[in-house]
Design a protein around this nucleic acid. Structure first.
Lengths: 117, 117
DNA sequence: CTAAAGTCTGACATGGGTGTGAGGGTCAAG
DNA sequence: CTTGACCCTCACACCCATGTCAGACTTTAG
């Protein structure tokens, strides 16, 4: 299928499908006219890419993950380390956000008190 | 005082002090030679700016907050709304991150199970 | 054959605080 | 006067998924 159809079937913009190819997350053969030609499998693969990106993984990690998932179980050991580091990174970001939130909530409370007074 | 001293006393880089001025968060008079000349108050003001930025507020909001804090209590009503919207935004970001984290944790669990099996 | 819809590549913009560098001016101590 | 420390402005780079536009080509329907 061509890119427009894949876009409609996955809900992912054409721009992003091209981007995934550039990032080597997704591949397609080309027609004689130069159009991308996707197999049926592409639909599922795009879904997996979206899932991984929605887990806040950067494209480079998504590429690694996809490669490992297609490899055997022995390829999944280093993968696990990569994912755990990403998880730790997420936790740190959440911690920072939580601290900011506490800051801001305190600030709001201050303003409230002062306005009442 | 000049910018280098303010930087040392606040721990904020010179680059950032200039940036705050550009963003109209901080002001200084100029010497005849064109150097910025800060009053003592600037030290405290920079501290307040840092505090607000550390609360994940964008500079435009920091500007509003600083202006309101210098205004009277009646100026703090709209301010409160602004801050609450920011807080809601923070909560949404935290929610998204939490969802991503859950996604990723699930993915890791899958890999673990599959590697054991 | 023609028009329209689809596709191609390449490039620029976004957000937004922050680093870094170039090229040049100011000021104080020797 | 010279040297060196300090400062000035302007501008580009970063991150990185995503939108959007321009100009050109392909495919398909009429």
């Amino acid at each position: 299928m061509r890119i427009g159809e894949l876009s409609k079937r996955t809900g992912v913009s054409i721009r992003m499908l091209r981007y995934y190819e550039e990032q080597r997350l997704l591949s397609a053969t080309r027609t004689s006219g130069g159009y991308r030609d996707y197999t049926e499998d592409a639909v599922e693969r795009v879904g997996r890419i979206r899932c991984l990106l929605d887990s806040a993984l950067p494209t480079a990690v998504v590429r690694t993950v996809l490669a490992s998932l297609c490899g055997g179980a022995e390829a999944e050991r280093p993968l696990l380390g990569v994912l755990e580091r990403e998880l730790a990174g997420l936790d740190e970001r959440m911690g920072r956000l939580a601290r900011s939130r506490a800051h801001l909530a305190g600030l709001i409370e201050d303003v409230r008190v002062r306005t009442r007074g």
